[in-house]
Write a protein that binds this DNA or RNA. Structure first.
Length: 647
RNA sequence: GCCAGCAUAGCUCAGUGGCAGAGCAACGGUUUUGUAAACCGUCGGUCGUCGGUUCGAAUCCGACUGCUGGCUCCA
């Protein structure tokens, strides 16, 4: 997740700004120092905004010269001079007229007057509401329009480092010019900076793309399969299957029933669900088939299909016209979500209130056309297997069902050792009604209140975020933190009060009238892709026994123990344990290193002593030797650890 | 999709206009082994693709594809 994606929609009040932590204040000050240095090297630089972020700070700048990492040393050298000079940060209050005049003289975000205006600063001034105080901060020659706050003097910036250069749109709007965004970080002292750099390095070492390749979990074959469509290799597929097993057991116990649905559906499906007008851009372009009977691939599909095929308003669907004479082509879409399919399963039979809640579960494979620049290893993909389920229930059942879903989340968190999480409860925004959100103002408020009540009562850790809901109802995004503190959005939960009605879903109630059920969309394990990506980084590839692709490797010391070793392997495999024998020409040391590097969970060494005593020498990956134990005990312990999904 | 950077053997990387390289992996052999690498040898690349400049291109230029870091987006 980008570190600075919490940029608020609403402008921060001065009061909120002044609540900056000490570290943020230091980092923001460092951004000014960096801007000073850049202005010295390239006086025509035009600065936009330079706030602190989670990992440090950035400043957006427009500049003919393309700043590259090779330039960092020069910029940092200038910054050091500024820090050594120990300029005070002076705060000046000015009138709007004064600020506009200074900006027109190019004096803001600059070292001196310039022949061109400080155009982005002028733009920023426009955003400052009437009546709000306008302030400058001056450090040495550098004067900037800035609400502050800052540290007292440039010398208070203890240690800093420029980290990367990227690009960003002015004010985050893609219609605005793209600026160069220079990232850096700063700390009170050198020790803290070095600790942070070490942590960054550790995070890089844990990157799921790196470990995924090392362990042979998956590949992305961009040339033949396509970008964003991982192929699970045997060792990765093991993890996929273990997760599915966990989900199936958990959902079975919670009263879910499983269904299976195809990967394609007719256009009518997504037109009815309402997804098409909202989300056509995020779906793969349709396949066009000649109408029923022929089944032949139509002309349109033989021509190269481009994204523009779905741009604008797609042609009106007439395939279901009752004339029966016309042969309109039928458009099929790869499914981007499972819900409409499940809705049709709900509709497949008459439903009674006695059937509710009906919980339909499926590990459904969906396809989403994510923009090329957003694909990221397993984290952002185009083909995804969702731990999906839809719970159809009455309003009276909602609280209990929704709470049970949350409890399931907590149960999973415990299994995976996820200690830090937060549920982001996204509600609708008034302004988006009828556009971003279905136009049902009262239903929105009612549903949101129901969700809020359940969350409040269950003691779940949540925050409420306005104007981020799904189009059909409020949404709960589940953010979790891996053991090293990286943040992930693992799953999304939604309450849907709109789409069941679009599909005409009803159940016959006690009073013999038809009513529309509520639908809860939930996916506690998210998608295999993202969840396994998270787990790789969470465990640094050192999976618990039940998930480890290689659970046990038995190493006979010499050929004389080959049969004994084989016996152990066969016994374990008979119990469905992923055990293998390794007897190559390598020395024992070499075989142990190989097993450690492959992250084999249990390494069982058997020499003559062990064979004679019917024992094994146990070594656990990353934890070293565990001593010699009776064979039967070791086997029993392995089976128990797997069965209990012990951490 | 946008901005920038990158693309050399399965992996990690060296090679700045003049014969395509190393380590690991793989394969073959020797070695029969007691807790993180035994030894010898062999194989392996149209230097991402296409085009241009040049006597000559991995190297310089352009386009495309993909990846990386961000931005926008994320049902």
């Amino acid at each position: 997740m980008p570190a600075d994606n919490q940029e608020p929609k609403e402008r921060k009040s001065l009061d909120e700004r002044h609540r900056m932590s000490e570290l943020e204040r230091l980092r923001h000050s460092c951004a000014h120092v960096m801007a000073t240095a850049i202005a010295r090297l390239w006086p025509d630089a035009q600065f936009a905004a330079g706030p602190p972020v989670d990992t440090g700070f950035y400043y957006d700048v427009e500049l003919e010269h393309r700043i590259a990492p090779e330039d960092f040393a020069a910029i940092e050298a200038e910054m050091k001079k500024e820090i050594k000079a120990n300029h005070p940060f002076e705060r000046l209050t000015v009138t709007r007229a004064q600020a506009v005049a200074d900006a027109q003289r190019g004096r803001l975000g600059a070292l001196a007057d310039r022949p061109v205006s400080s155009k982005f600063k002028l733009g920023n001034l426009e955003d400052i509401p009437e009546g709000e105080e306008i302030t400058y901060y001056r450090s040495g020659d550098f004067v900037d329009l800035c609400a502050g706050p800052h540290v007292l003097r440039t010398g208070n910036i203890g240690a800093f480092k420029l980290t990367s250069v990227a690009s960003a749109y002015y004010k985050g709007d893609e219609r605005n010019p793209q600026l160069q965004r220079i990232y850096g970080t700063a700390f009170k002292n050198k020790t803290q900076l070095e600790e942070w750099l070490k942590l960054q390095e550790e995070a890089r070492q844990r990157d799921h793309r790196k470990i995924g390749a090392e362990m042979g979990l998956y590949v992305i074959d961009t040339e033949f399969t396509g970008p964003g469509m991982p192929l699970w290799l045997p060792k990765g597929a093991v993890i996929v299957e273990e997760l599915e097993k966990l989900a199936k057991e958990t959902e079975f116990a919670a009263g879910y029933v499983r269904v299976k649905t195809p990967h394609l559906a007719k256009e009518k499906m997504y037109r009815t669900s309402g997804h098409l007008p909202y989300y056509a851009e995020s779906m793969f372009p349709p396949m066009v088939l000649a109408e029923e009977g022929g089944g032949r691939v139509g002309e349109a599909a033989q021509a190269p299909v481009t994204r523009s095929a779905t741009e604008g308003e797609p042609p009106v669907e007439r395939a279901d016209s009752t004339s029966g004479l016309r042969t309109e082509p039928t458009r099929y879409y790869l499914k981007a979500m499972n819900c409409p399919h499940h809705h049709r399963i709900f509709a497949a039979e008459p439903r009674s209130y006695r059937d509710l809640p009906l919980r339909l579960a499926e590990y459904g494979c969906c396809y989403r056309y994510e923009q090329s620049g957003e694909l990221l290893g397993l984290m952002r993909v185009r083909s995804l297997n969702m731990n999906d389920a839809h719970i159809y229930c009455t309003e009276d059942q909602f609280a209990a069902e929704f709470n049970a879903v949350n409890q399931m989340y907590l149960q999973y968190f415990k299994i995976f050792g996820i200690e830090k999480y937060v549920m982001r409860f996204s509600t609708h925004g008034q302004a988006g009604l009828g556009k971003k959100y279905v136009d049902e103002p009262e239903l929105w408020l009612k549903t949101e209140a129901m969700v809020r009540r359940v969350l409040d009562q269950s003691g779940i850790n949540f925050v409420e975020v306005p104007d981020e809901a799904a189009f059909y109802g409020p949404k709960i995004d589940v953010q979790v933190w891996s053991v090293i503190g990286r943040e992930f959005t693992l799953a999304t939960n939604q309450v849907d009060f709109a789409v069941p009605a679009k599909f005409g879903l009803v159940y016959r109630d006690r009073d013999n009238t038809d009513k529309t059920p509520l639908c809860i969309h939930r996916a506690p394990l998210g998608t295999h892709e993202r969840f396994i990506g998270f787990l790789i980084e969470h465990y640094a590839g050192n999976f618990p026994l039940w998930l480890a692709p290689d659970q046990v490797r038995v190493l006979p010391v010499t050929e004389a123990q080959l049969d004994y070793a084989r016996g152990i392997v066969n016994e374990l495999r008979g119990e469905q344990v992923r055990a293998e024998l390794e007897f190559s020409s390598d020395k024992l040391m070499g075989r142990i290193q190989r097993a450690e590097q492959a992250r084999v969970h249990h390494i069982l060494v058997v020499g003559q002593r062990e064979q004679d005593a019917q024992s094994v020498a146990v070594r656990i990956h990353g934890r070293g030797q565990q001593g010699v134990q009776p064979r039967a005990e070791v086997v029993a312990d392995i089976l128990a650890a797997i069965r209990q999904r012990r951490a």
